[in-house]
Computed example of a mutant assay.
Amino acid sequence: MTNQTLLVQSRLAPPEGSQPVRIDRLNAGALVFYHAVAALAFLPWLFSWTGAVLCIVGIYLFGTLGINLCYHRLLTHRGLVCPKWLEHTFAVLGVCSFQDTPARWVAVHRKHHQHADEQADPHSPLVSFFWAHMHWIYVENRELNRLGIFDRYAKDILRDRFYVWLERRGSWLWVILGSWVVFFLIGVGVALVGGADSAEVLRMGLSVLVWGVFVRTVIVWHITWSVNSVTHLWGYRNYGTEDCSRNNVFVGLLSNGEGWHNNHHADPRSARHGHTAWEIDVTWITIRALEAVGLATRVVRPSPHVRATAGEHGTAS
């Protein structure tokens, strides 16, 4: 099926495994809870510059390093290799972004690439924008059953005992809960160093927890989800891929490089998503820095063959 065919068809049905539509109560509850707690940031009592700064820094640490670099470019597409201690550290940052375990994130994303903008795609916006953005997350999908999808799409990930451990008995959820404690204690520590009274110590602990964990997580969620939704609908195309992927300037900059999505679909293994000088890719800049100090090896560059086709079938929409 060509890209033009996909564009003119009215709508895709949700994946067969999602029919009939049934709400995944655990995922739905988690989404509502995180958004509700993040909304508490609008209370002046919970604002602190420490919390706001940790939120901004956390978007890079947990979103760019944990999701973009580790979950996506390193584990899913094997676009680079890092020492295991560093890979696992980045993976923990990804876990704390609350986007599921490394193995399941990888499996779902690999399935997306195999069936991009077809009915079997877990999150195509050809179903609807909202479906691609977040609806698919809290709907049960039999095709994404952990055991079944792991066997087909994530065998290599689960050869590593660390990733197996994260899957067992919800260990990854305990990692997330542990991060809550760490952020709360950071806030408490900052207040104690400043000689604050008990009420201020509590306020600072809660402020850092709300801003450093919940606000940051919700922001990273919507950045990641925008790659699934926005960049398969609006933007320009450098390459004539057989899907609806687009390079979207807003998402490209906001996501630190993930929004150059047409480039990525044209050359999935490449660790560099921004293919032109002005397609700024902060994740790629980070990878180059790691490579320069010997912490990233076997870094995959854009394929010369793919780059040679740029512009031949590109379109804007």
Results as ranks from 00 to 15, higher is better:
residue 110 R to T: 01
residue 110 R to P: 00
residue 111 K to M: 09
residue 112 H to D: 06
residue 113 H to Y: 05
residue 114 Q to H: 08
residue 115 H to R: 04
residue 116 A to G: 02
residue 116 A to C: 12
residue 116 A to D: 02
residue 116 A to V: 05
residue 116 A to H: 03
residue 117 D to P: 02
residue 117 D to Y: 06
residue 118 E to T: 08
residue 118 E to I: 01
residue 118 E to K: 09
residue 118 E to H: 08
residue 119 Q to G: 01
residue 120 A to D: 13
residue 120 A to Q: 10
residue 121 D to M: 06
residue 121 D to Y: 08
residue 122 P to G: 04
residue 122 P to D: 04
residue 123 H to P: 02
residue 123 H to K: 02
residue 123 H to S: 01
residue 124 S to Y: 04
residue 125 P to H: 08
residue 125 P to R: 10
residue 125 P to A: 09
residue 125 P to W: 07
residue 127 V to P: 01
residue 128 S to K: 14
residue 128 S to Q: 09
residue 128 S to Y: 11
residue 129 F to S: 05
residue 129 F to P: 03
residue 129 F to Y: 14
residue 130 F to W: 14
residue 130 F to H: 10
residue 131 W to F: 15
residue 131 W to Y: 15
residue 131 W to P: 01
residue 132 A to Q: 07
residue 134 M to D: 08
residue 134 M to N: 01
residue 134 M to K: 00
residue 134 M to C: 06
residue 134 M to A: 11
residue 134 M to F: 05
residue 135 H to Y: 06
residue 135 H to E: 13
residue 136 W to V: 02
residue 136 W to N: 01
residue 136 W to A: 00
residue 137 I to Q: 00
residue 138 Y to I: 11
residue 138 Y to Q: 00
residue 139 V to E: 00
residue 139 V to R: 00
residue 139 V to F: 03
residue 140 E to N: 11
residue 140 E to K: 14
residue 140 E to Q: 06
residue 140 E to L: 12
residue 141 N to F: 02
residue 141 N to T: 06
residue 142 R to D: 08
residue 142 R to F: 02
residue 143 E to F: 07
residue 143 E to L: 09
residue 144 L to K: 07
residue 144 L to S: 04
residue 145 N to E: 12
residue 145 N to M: 05
residue 145 N to S: 12
residue 146 R to L: 07
residue 146 R to H: 12
residue 146 R to F: 08
residue 147 L to G: 09
residue 147 L to T: 15
residue 147 L to V: 14
residue 147 L to Q: 13
residue 147 L to P: 03
residue 147 L to Y: 05
residue 148 G to V: 09
residue 148 G to T: 13
residue 148 G to L: 10
residue 149 I to P: 03
residue 150 F to W: 13
residue 151 D to I: 11
residue 151 D to W: 11
residue 151 D to A: 15
residue 152 R to F: 04
residue 152 R to I: 15
residue 152 R to H: 11
residue 153 Y to D: 12
residue 153 Y to N: 09
residue 154 A to F: 10
residue 154 A to G: 13
residue 155 K to Y: 05
residue 156 D to I: 10
residue 156 D to W: 11
residue 157 I to C: 01
residue 158 L to Q: 08
residue 158 L to R: 03
residue 159 R to P: 04
residue 159 R to F: 07
residue 159 R to D: 15
residue 159 R to S: 14
residue 160 D to I: 11
residue 160 D to T: 03
residue 160 D to C: 10
residue 160 D to P: 02
residue 160 D to R: 05
residue 161 R to D: 12
residue 161 R to I: 04
residue 162 F to E: 09
residue 163 Y to H: 13
residue 163 Y to E: 02
residue 164 V to E: 01
residue 165 W to E: 03
residue 165 W to P: 06
residue 165 W to D: 13
residue 166 L to N: 06
residue 166 L to F: 13
residue 167 E to P: 15
residue 167 E to K: 14
residue 167 E to F: 15
residue 168 R to W: 13
residue 168 R to Q: 15
residue 169 R to A: 15
residue 169 R to G: 08
residue 170 G to K: 12
residue 170 G to I: 13
residue 170 G to C: 14
residue 172 W to F: 15
residue 173 L to P: 00
residue 174 W to K: 14
residue 175 V to F: 11
